Simulated scan of single mutants.
Amino acid sequence: MQAAILDWAGTVVDFGSFAPTRIFVEAFAEFGVAISLEEARGPMGMGKWDHIRTLCNQPAVAARFAQRFDRVPSDADVTAIYERFMPLQIAKVAEHSALIPGALEAIAALRAEGLKIGTCSGYPRAVMSKVQALAAAAGYHPDHVVATDEVPRGRPGPAQALANVIALGLDDVAACVKVDDTLPGILEGRRAGMWTVALRCSGNFLGLDWAQYQALPAARLAEERERISALFAPSRPHYLIDTLAELPAVVNAINARLARGECPQAQ
């Protein structure tokens, strides 16, 4: 393996992926339109403008918007919500910026095996710069970072993952693994021709903080793993794990498969 391309919120920082979801709720509320945290989580992984557009396309959300404004939300309305979302996100992202337990240790183990660490996010650069600075202060220094507005099209397209390949000087996408907690992020890796690893418990689909996750009874956790695995199924991840702490073992397994001549595109 040459590199791991890691997502940010719900993967390396912000256990439960709370920073973006709660701000979507607040931004819509400022326009007099109520959305639930569960609704806000639905399109997670997309760039934030596309995320808001997708939310506005949902019939229930569009109906609430129409009740408030007497029209369905246009692209101009989406942009207005996005422009309110951005300063809220920049101001509040630090509230949910802690590194996920076990992440630094896993990344150190990957580096010890010679892997480079690329990253990408649904955050635009204005937010990503703040998240990156907070993570650096906590000891996380990836080799490259690609924000969603630094490519022509974000997730689920492959551009951000492939931008990492170019910047890091890698010579084989099949020697890369993309790790994410969302469907668009796994599709990104698939479309980039990489191995993909979906995170069940640290991210968007479980939607719990670390303490809540730790307190889950074993039977309930097993049920949640099964539910989340089914949610990921359409994106066809090569591996499903709970948190990034399990990634080094997966990389060892992928190395064995590469040695046998297997490639991710054929799996």
Rank of each mutant, 00 (worst) to 15 (best):
D70F: 00
F85I: 08
A60P: 05
Q132A: 15
D70N: 10
A106T: 04
P73A: 15
R53V: 14
D75I: 02
C120R: 07
R53A: 10
I81R: 01
K92A: 12
P87D: 13
I90K: 09
A63Y: 08
E113N: 13
I90R: 11
L134M: 10
A133T: 03
P59R: 12
A135N: 07
V131Q: 13
R68T: 08
M44A: 14
L134K: 06
P101A: 10
G102Y: 14
V131K: 06
A63M: 09
A60Y: 05
A135E: 10
A66K: 13
E39L: 08
L37W: 10
Y82G: 13
A112M: 13
A76E: 15
K92M: 08
A112T: 09
L37Y: 13
A63V: 00
I52K: 09
R64V: 04
Q67H: 01
M44R: 02
P43I: 12
A98K: 02
H51N: 09
S97M: 06
E83S: 13
F69R: 00
Q89F: 15
A108V: 03
Y123V: 01
G42P: 01
S97F: 07
A66P: 08
I107K: 08
A60L: 11
W49S: 03
E105W: 03
A133H: 07
V72R: 14
I100H: 11
E95H: 10
V61G: 01
A136Q: 14
R41T: 06
A40R: 07
A40Y: 03
M86P: 00
A60R: 13
V72Q: 15
D50G: 06
E83K: 07
A60C: 08
R111K: 13
K130P: 02
A80R: 15
A108K: 10
T79F: 11
A66T: 07
M46H: 01
Q132L: 12
E38Q: 15
F69Y: 13
L99E: 09
H96D: 10
P124D: 05
E113K: 14
L99R: 11
D75R: 07
R68A: 14
S74L: 10
K130S: 06
E39Y: 03
M46W: 05
W49P: 01
I117V: 11
A91F: 02
S121H: 01
R53H: 02
V131H: 09
P59W: 11
L37P: 06
D75P: 03
V72S: 14
P124Q: 04
R84K: 15
A106M: 08
D77L: 09
A135P: 07
M128L: 15
L115Y: 03
F85L: 15
A98V: 01
V61C: 04
P43K: 11
I100C: 12
A66W: 01
T119A: 15
Q67M: 00
A66R: 14
L115Q: 04
L115M: 10
V131M: 15
S129C: 04
R53Q: 14
M86F: 01
Q67S: 05
D75N: 10
D77K: 01
M46K: 04
I117C: 11
H96Y: 15
I117P: 03
A40L: 12
H51S: 02
D50Q: 04
G122L: 05
S74F: 05
A63I: 02
D70T: 00
I100D: 01
I90E: 15
